[in-house]
């Protein structure tokens, strides 16, 4: 896999895990869901924060 796809693919895998986790159970499954599904959002926020024109 080339560099272009490395991070998007990782975010996609985390998203799939997150979306599936909470339907499989409660408690630890919910936490897994919240944690993994937050990563793409945090990446968006961080990239925006760091490169926002001063």
């Amino acid at each position: 896999m080339t560099g272009v796809w490395r991070i998007p693919a990782a975010l996609a895998v985390l998203s799939v895990i997150g979306l599936a986790a909470a339907i499989l159970g409660d408690g630890v499954w919910d936490w897994l869901c919240w944690a993994t599904l937050s990563v793409p959002l945090v990446v968006c926020a961080a990239k925006l924060w760091r490169q926002w024109p001063a």
Binding site: P8, L11, S15, V16, L19, P40, L41, C44, K47
Partner: peptide
Amino acid sequence: LHNLFGVATLVW
């Protein structure tokens, strides 16, 4: 911005 936000949230 479109590319970053789009690809990051694509699965959702």
